[in-house]
Design a binder for these strands. Structure first.
Lengths: 325, 325
DNA sequence: TTGAAAGCGCTAACAA
DNA sequence: TTGTTAGCGCTTTCAA
């Protein structure tokens, strides 16, 4: 690889001049500029970003932490972040944390050593304390973990309330909830929204709430169990779409007709909900948009050290499909 | 952030000695080592990887190119690669190429400037010519694009043949194929495997092969069309699982019973195939394993400049589920 | 308008 | 066993 010195030599100028041409700043005579550009072309020269980073202390690199990219909620988020960062010539680093604090800390340290410019984190385990010696901007996405960190989330509680009310409005008399993991703030907020609507109903039983893990398989099993114990249930608000697909599957194995006998509504709006039969009614998050906003805010924070904390909370939208009557 | 000089000063040694302790090489007196380690701890010092990279010309960073992480085949691949690279303290960069050559070239240049140590590419568009001035190891994954590049793929043709023969073996008399995009070598190989089995059958019609794009929506539409035109079809080998889910959906909208009237087999073995009703029979690729192998071979190539070209071709496995009788 | 030179933080000869 | 020093490739002051 050619270096700036090779270019300087060929163009008969100093490295400083080449640098000026490269960065388009300072005075450079037009003819000199041309000579330099010719030399650059001739040598197929590309500046070494590592050297630049060392000098500047910035890497033009940002990282996204997700629990697991295999969970279908995250690829769309990742894609959104990557699209924005790529457009701004940032390199996109992906980290799977498995919701494991040790892994998160290890990533955090490693990335700091690489002068990463900023971080977007989907995390249930990290705390304000853990990031106190991180000197680069952090945006929390999908879940909040501190009031001192900018965040992009949705109004989970309100969304859950809308979902549950919708089930009531279409005539459901016994509405259950499959909730996500306790560790995730969004899951707890959705539970609250559900309880807001049903907790004073005379029919409400605490056994109408069962705990899932945001994944398909377990949801299938616990739903079979719950519906066997409680055949009177005629509506389920499920904490996310992936578990709702498990619920759908469970109803088939129990020969329960959806939506005739049981209405199901999920949360997230991931694309798998369009492929099932029946298609899945859901509270749709603007997933791509959330990723875009997180990335935009991060880039803004990177470029404006004296930024305010921004906490955006987006609305979710009821998408009526065929799993509710 | 503390630098090596701060540590040296505090421990009353030279930076060279600190470096020796850091890298565990060369002679260091035990007591000196202790002093240095104490200073490191006291200052919470972490070496600057950018400076290291500049010196070594290596970044401990590898990148994975995929067409689109939203396509559910790729997250598992990405996860596998990230797991391996993370274990070896490499930073994992993800690039969505959209199968767009210009984007690939731009990524390639940008990453070279960052001294990326190696690349794993899932690409249909790149050619030997395009990478001739890439000086770091490249592994092609899922699709081959050159005999001079190490690769990890599956035996698509044989897998397709097995799938098609299986449909015959369970009594299908008119077997169609939804194939993937022409640009992808794996898609064309699967088509060949299908043709190997059916092209000399008296019933075979060229209209039994229709072209999809590896995605759900289009597959739904073209399958409806095909099955309307050709109600005699009683078996479909689908180029990938995502399209097979579209096929399943199409059969429901046409009230065709699967597997009683029509057997369907997909390819890939992504997890969505376990969530459908009926569950999807498929030719399962060892997706995670493929990603792991690609990463392992890449790391090997990075560490052994005089490596041989390795082209691994893995077998796919017939997974019988409920979409075939 | 241009060049000389210092320095970003680290490693590795080489010398002591 | 330890220190001195050059240099990885770049940017930016400062001086000319």
């Amino acid at each position: 690889m050619a270096t700036i010195r090779d270019v300087a030599k060929l163009a008969n100028v100093s490295t400083a001049t080449v640098s000026r041409v490269l960065n388009n700043q300072g005075y450079v005579n037009n003819e000199t500029r041309k000579r330099v550009n010719d030399a650059i072309k001739q040598l197929n020269y590309r500046p070494n970003d590592v050297a630049r980073s060392l000098f500047k202390g910035r890497s033009k690199m940002i990282a996204l932490f997700v629990p697991d990219i295999k969970n279908p909620f995250f690829p769309e988020l990742a894609r959104a972040v990557e699209d924005v960062t790529n457009k701004h010539n940032y390199t996109f680093v992906l980290c799977n944390t498995d919701d494991n604090l040790d892994k998160e800390i290890t990533y955090l340290n490693g990335l700091q050593q690489k002068s990463v410019d900023g971080l977007i984190m989907v995390s249930s385990t990290i705390s304000q304390e853990d990031i106190k010696n991180i000197s680069v901007p952090i945006i929390s996405l999908d879940r909040k973990f501190s009031s001192e960190v900018s965040s992009v989330t949705v109004n989970n509680r309100k969304g859950a309330e809308i979902a549950t009310r919708y089930l009531k409005s279409i005539g459901c008399k016994r509405i259950a909830h499959i909730c996500g993991p306790q560790s995730a703030s969004n899951s707890m907020d959705r539970l609250k929204g559900y309880l807001d609507v049903v907790k004073h109903e005379s029919w409400f039983l605490s056994s109408y709430v069962v705990s899932g893990d945001y994944r398909f398989q377990q949801s299938f099993e616990i739903t079979r169990e719950m519906l066997t114990q409680h055949p009177e249930i005629d509506g389920i608000f499920v904490g996310n779409d992936l578990m709702a697909v498990g619920v759908l599957k469970a109803t088939k194995s129990l020969k329960i007709k959806v939506p005739e006998e049981l209405s199901i509504i999920g949360f997230d709006g991931i694309s798998i909900g369009e492929t099932t039969t029946p298609t899945l009614t859901t509270m749709q998050q603007p997933i791509y948009k959330l990723g875009v906003r997180a990335a935009q805010i991060l880039l803004d924070h990177i470029n404006n050290p004296n930024h305010d904390i921004i906490q955006e909370e987006w609305d979710v939208t009821l998408i009526k499909r065929d799993s509710t009557k």
